[in-house]
């Protein structure tokens, strides 16, 4: 039962991710990415990490993708307006993304050799435990991430301001 749900979600997320990359219309891409996020959130629920699943939906589906869609609607991109890419740009893009893929595959292969930690506690993903871990064992990285976000926010406000006195 769990395996069937897992496989359905996994296949769905791969198919939607591929469709997101392959579709020509940027707004359709956003919709497919949204569906990919839902499939991934389903995986979190399967792992009993409900908090992570909901936050994933709120942050990515509810905020980030809305902004993506917002910008795409304002630009109203279509095939006529799309600038022609030269062969050199295409080569450069292929090279860069190829290197990223190489890194990812290498990391995953190295990770596969490590032993899988046995998860004995099914409540590990619940919000109480997650909060405790975040504010005790991982408090420094957690706060660092917060500062990073603050810096990004200040930067965005500065960029958005027209004139700086």
């Amino acid at each position: 039962m769990t395996l069937a749900v897992f496989l359905t979600l996994a296949i769905a997320s791969i198919v939607f991710a591929l469709l997101m990359v392959l579709t020509k219309n940027p707004v359709h891409s956003v919709i497919f990415l949204l569906l990919t996020f839902f499939a991934v959130a389903g995986q979190y629920v399967l792992l009993n990490a409900q908090f992570l699943a909901v936050v994933h939906i709120i942050v990515y589906a509810g905020a980030v993708m809305v902004l993506f869609l917002f910008v795409l609607m304002l630009l109203n991109l279509n095939t006529e307006a799309e600038p022609r890419q030269t062969a050199r740009w295409k080569l450069a893009a292929a090279l860069v993304s190829g290197m990223l893929m190489l890194t990812l595959v290498g990391t995953l292969r190295a990770g596969a050799a490590l032993p899988i930690p046995e998860n004995t506690d099914p409540h590990v993903g619940l919000v109480q435990n997650l909060g405790k871990v975040l504010f005790t064992d991982f408090v420094v990285p957690f706060e660092m991430a917060g500062i990073l976000f603050l810096a990004a926010m200040v930067g965005a406000v500065l960029l958005a301001k027209r004139e700086i006195r």
């Binding site: 409900q50 908090f51 909901v54 939906i57 509810g62």
Partner: peptide
């Protein structure tokens, strides 16, 4: 056990 976040999540999807 995250009921209130579930509500926030689905409200934020309403805009789509």
């Amino acid at each position: 056990n995250i009921g209130i976040l579930y509500i926030l999540g689905f409200t934020s999807l309403g805009v789509y």
